[in-house]
C-alpha cells in the first residue's frame, strides 16, 4: 500500500497531458505546428491569443456565452429554491410524479428537442437572443438544481423551521434570514453545476443562435470547418474556454465532492 498515491498521480497525469498539449499548441505559430514535432514551443508566441482578443467575431463569443450562462444560473437557482423546499418539506398531490418528470427532462437527449426549439423560439420572437439560450438550458439545469438543492435541504433538520415559526417568523423572512444561510454551500454548489452544464452545452446553444448571441463554442466549430485550419488560434480559443471553469472550481473546491453526490451522502 506504500505506492497507493501512484494511482491518482498517474490518472492526473493522464488528465493533464491532452490539456498540456493544447496549451503547448496555442503558444506556437501555425508554421511550427505543421513543420516540426516538438514537445514544447521553440518560438514562444502570444500571437494566437492576440488574434482572439482583437477580433470582435472571436471575443464576442466569450461575452455571449458569459451572458447567457449568467442569466441561466440566476434563473435556475432562484426558481429552484422554493421548489426544492416544497419537495423536501411537504407532500402534495403528484409530488413524486412531478419530481420524476423533472428528472426525465434532465435525461432527455437535447437532440430530440433541438428540432422544434428553433421554431418555438422563432415564433415568440426570441431567436438569436441570450435569454432564449438561457431558458432553453433551463430544460436540464432547473431539474438538476431542484435535485441538488432538495438533497441539501433534506439534510437541514426540520426543527429549525418549526422553531422559527414558533418565534413568529413569516415564511419569506424565515426563508431568507434563516434557511438560505443554512444551505449556503448547497446554493454555491448548485450554481456551480448550472454554470458547468450551461457552459459546456453546444447543440441547443448553436441551434438557437445565429449572429448576436452566438456562443464561443459554436464559433470554434465554424472555424474548424471553414477557414484553412489555423490550429494555433483554435488551440488558444480552446484554452480560453477552460479558464472560466478553473476559476469557478476554485470557489467551490471544499464542497465539490458532496455536490457531485447531489447533496445526498
Amino acid at each position: 500500500m506504500r505506492f497507493k498515491w501512484l494511482i491518482p498521480a498517474i490518472y492526473i497525469l493522464f488528465l493533464l497531458l491532452p490539456i498540456y498539449w493544447l496549451v503547448n499548441m496555442s503558444l506556437k505559430t501555425n508554421d511550427e505546428i505543421l513543420s516540426v514535432f516538438s514537445l514544447w514551443p521553440h518560438n514562444l508566441t502570444l500571437d494566437n491569443y492576440r488574434v482572439i482578443f482583437t477580433d470582435a467575431s472571436w471575443y464576442s463569443g466569450y461575452i455571449n456565452s458569459m451572458i447567457y450562462v449568467t442569466i441561466n444560473v440566476i434563473i435556475s437557482v432562484s426558481f429552484a429554491l422554493p421548489a426544492a423546499y416544497a419537495f423536501s418539506r411537504y407532500s402534495f398531490v403528484g409530488d413524486k410524479h412531478l419530481f420524476f418528470w423533472l428528472l426525465t427532462n434532465r435525461m432527455a437527449p437535447p437532440a430530440v428537442f433541438a428540432l422544434p426549439f428553433f421554431q418555438l423560439y422563432s415564433s415568440i420572437g426570441l431567436f438569436d437572443t441570450h435569454i432564449a439560450v438561457a431558458i432553453a438550458h433551463c430544460l436540464f439545469n432547473l431539474p438538476l438544481a431542484v435535485w441538488i438543492l432538495e438533497g441539501f435541504m433534506s439534510g437541514v433538520p426540520k426543527e429549525i423551521d418549526e422553531t422559527a415559526f414558533i418565534d413568529g417568523y413569516s415564511w419569506p423572512r424565515f426563508f431568507v434570514r434563516i434557511f438560505i444561510p443554512n444551505i449556503a454551500s448547497g446554493i454555491g454548489v448548485t450554481a456551480f453545476f448550472c454554470f458547468m452544464f450551461s457552459w459546456v452545452e453546444l447543440l441547443l446553444a448553436r441551434t438557437l443562435t445565429a449572429v448576436n448571441a452566438k456562443p464561443i463554442s459554436a464559433i470554434m466549430t465554424r472555424t474548424v470547418s471553414a477557414s484553412g485550419l489555423d490550429w494555433g488560434v483554435l488551440a488558444a480559443a480552446g484554452v480560453l474556454t477552460i479558464l472560466p471553469g478553473t476559476l469557478v472550481i476554485w470557489f467551490v473546491r471544499n464542497h465539490i465532492a458532496k455536490g457531485f453526490a447531489l447533496g445526498r451522502v
Binding site: 493544447l22 459546456v200 474548424v224 480552446g238 474556454t241 471553469g245
Partner: peptide, 23 residues
Amino acid sequence: CLITMALPLLIPWNVVGTIWQIF
C-alpha cells in the same frame, strides 16, 4: 486531486472534441 479531476468536466464538449482531435 479534486481540482485537477474536476477540470475535464468544465471544458465545453466541443473543446473536449477538439482537444482529442488534435491530440
